[in-house]
């Protein structure tokens, strides 16, 4: 395939993932390079996502690339009823790559089939957000030295959490042990458990932070949202169970790090921020290096 896009984390082979992580390491050592000089990258945000957009734009800017695009659909022709097909057909003429975020699932796959240039999916509804998964992998590898045989704790909304599902799928390539910690209503969907069964990987389900927290290498926190509960009383009962506080980290492993896709609301108490085991802000910075690696790789510049 001449034109390569990144739509779903499953589009990458394990070798390709590792190679992108290695490249991201190079960018961490030297983030400012002129690889994208003379290139124009379109950032099409059909729904606002300031964090993701800034991370991409920072990655592009540090490589000397120029950016065109829009930051939400209301400032674009989409509000006038233009189809995705027409928007992509037009924009593909103006740029060397498209980074897009769209609330509708599968929109990025469709765009990648329409565009003449590579498309990076920066989130398509509840479906995929592969650059988030890559930066998660980067953060895990960086803090643990390797992706092999880790004990990964996934905490919070494991039912709807897109980042959690993609991370699970990616980490299942490295002999990971999974601990799922969630309220009853937001448990990890059975299809993922079947998948892990098929691979012969170990996983455990818990409804609160148990003694087992001592065994974690990575604790990946997500937000438990009230809207996800059919019964608001159920939410009230569990809302404080999935909040991480500093005192809970006392007996955790030396190498343990806490990750979170951000934005955080209250699921990680601010008293954790000063603990050297908190890693979510560095994790966000790693997103810039990872995206630099993905952009230059898809454009065959690295």
């Amino acid at each position: 395939m001449n034109k390569k896009s990144l739509v779903s984390i499953d589009d990458l082979s394990t070798d390709e993932m590792v190679s992108i992580l290695d490249l991201a390491e190079e960018f961490e050592k030297q983030p400012s390079q002129t690889l994208l000089e003379g290139k124009v990258i379109a950032t099409l945000f059909f729904e606002p996502s300031t964090r993701t957009r800034l991370s991409f734009e920072s990655a592009i800017s540090r490589l000397g690339g120029k950016i065109v695009g829009f930051t939400d659909a209301s400032s674009s022709s989409v509000t006038k009823g233009e189809t995705l097909n027409d928007t992509i057909r037009t924009v593909t003429n103006y740029c060397d790559m498209i980074v897009m975020r769209h609330p509708i699932e599968g929109s990025a796959r469709l765009a990648s089939e329409i565009a003449d240039v590579p498309v990076i999916n920066a989130g398509d509804g509840a479906n995929q957000h592969p650059t988030q998964t890559m930066l998660d992998l980067y953060s895990i590898r960086k803090t643990q030295g390797s992706l092999d045989k880790l004990n990964l704790f996934l905490v919070g909304d494991l039912k709807y959490g897109r980042t959690v599902h993609s991370l699970l799928m990616a980490m299942s390539r490295w002999n990971t042990t999974f601990n799922f910690i969630s309220p009853e209503e937001l448990r990890i969907p059975v299809e993922y458990k079947l998948y892990l069964d098929k691979l012969g990987l170990r996983y455990y389900e818990h409804s609160d932070f148990t003694e087992i927290i001592k065994e974690a290498d990575i604790i990946y926190m997500t937000r438990v949202q009230k809207e996800r509960f059919s019964d608001p009383m159920e939410y009230e009962k569990v809302k404080n169970v999935y909040v991480l506080r500093n005192h809970m980290l006392r007996e955790t492993k030396e190498n343990m790090k806490i990750l979170h896709p951000l934005p955080r609301v209250n699921e990680i108490h601010t008293d954790v921020d000063m603990n050297e085991k908190s890693y979510y802000f560095q994790q966000a910075l790693n997103g810039v290096y990872t995206r630099q690696a993905i952009i230059t790789r898809l454009l065959n510049l690295k």
Partner: peptide, 14 residues
């Protein structure tokens, strides 16, 4: 038809 109401195939002629 895709069962997912939020799927692009239920929005655009794909």
């Amino acid at each position: 038809r895709c069962v997912n109401p939020k799927c692009i195939t239920n929005f655009e002629s794909v």
